[in-house]
């Protein structure tokens, strides 16, 4: 068993995350789906880093974690602002911009 199996695992997690974005109405849940996608990408990076025996992949994964943390802060802030205005965090609710 090589580290490649973890890449398969990452692909599955990535797809599950993507499905969550498409299917879940709760903004926070959809957002957790995005987080899962980023984590899947991290797993790929770390797995390849292991396979190639170098550290670059790990460092990239580290950067991604920091970026993801920053993204989470902004995303949740937007969700809170929206909740204060609308008393809901459903993604279906705000749909006045269309057409």
């Amino acid at each position: 068993m090589t580290a490649m199996s973890f890449v398969y695992l990452a692909a599955i997690l990535f797809a599950i995350g993507a499905a969550a974005v498409l299917l879940r109405r709760n903004a926070i849940v959809a957002f957790m789906g995005v987080e899962l996608m980023l984590n899947a990408a991290n797993l790929v990076l770390v797995a390849f880093s292991r396979m190639y025996g170098e550290l670059d992949g790990q460092i990239m994964a580290f950067f991604v974690m920091v970026v993801a943390a920053a993204e989470v802060v902004v995303g949740l802030a937007i969700i809170i602002a929206l909740f204060r205005a609308r008393q809901t965090i459903s993604l279906d609710e705000p749909a006045e911009l269309k057409g």
Partner: peptide, 11 residues
């Protein structure tokens, strides 16, 4: 509308 746009853009 502006907040809706931000949420969509962000997600």
């Amino acid at each position: 509308l502006s907040q809706e746009a931000a949420l969509k853009y962000f997600l």
